[in-house]
């Protein structure tokens, strides 16, 4: 377990965080969680995760702002951020306003989420 990557899961939906935590821990990832943007930044600084799964729509500080802040920090500039969204492509009406590594629909099956997580970690060399 020690050489497995550490993943930060951020979502204000506690149930979904629990599901994602269980799924990822099932693959022996080290999982830390946060329930809002502010907490996510603090947890990221403290835990230094290898990858971040980040919800977009959250009260107070949303995923866009959180990702922007993290990407500005040199410590996380290269940390892959996978944005979780319940929007289907057209819902936003236009391209998402900032660049994260990938957008993942919340309705995507956990199996596919695991595949994407693994692919991004592999690209990063972990």
């Amino acid at each position: 377990m020690s050489n497995k990557a550490k993943i930060l899961v951020v979502d204000d939906d506690h149930d979904l965080v629990e599901v994602l935590k269980a799924v990822l821990e099932g693959e022996s990832y080290d999982v830390v969680v946060a329930y809002n943007g502010k907490e996510a930044v603090a947890k990221a600084k403290k835990e230094n995760p290898d990858l971040i799964l980040l919800d977009i729509i959250m009260p107070e500080k949303d995923g866009f702002l959180t990702a922007e802040e993290l990407k500005k920090d040199p410590a996380f500039a290269k940390t892959p951020i996978l944005a979780l969204t319940s929007f289907s492509g057209g819902d936003m009406g236009q391209p998402f306003p900032f660049e994260v590594e990938e957008y993942i629909m919340k309705s995507t099956s956990p199996k596919d989420i695991l595949k994407k997580v693994a692919a991004h970690l592999e690209r990063k060399g972990i």
């Binding site: 939906d13 149930d15 979904l16 599901v19 994602l20 269980a22 799924v23 729509i57 319940s86 929007f87 819902d91 919340k106 309705s107 099956s109 956990p110 199996k111």
Partner: peptide, 20 residues
């Protein structure tokens, strides 16, 4: 936009639990 989010978020959680 908010309606889409709030309607789909619970479904994602339910499907997550079902998957587990």
């Amino acid at each position: 936009g908010m309606a889409a989010h709030d309607l789909k978020a619970p479904l994602a959680a339910i499907q997550g639990f079902l998957w587990l």
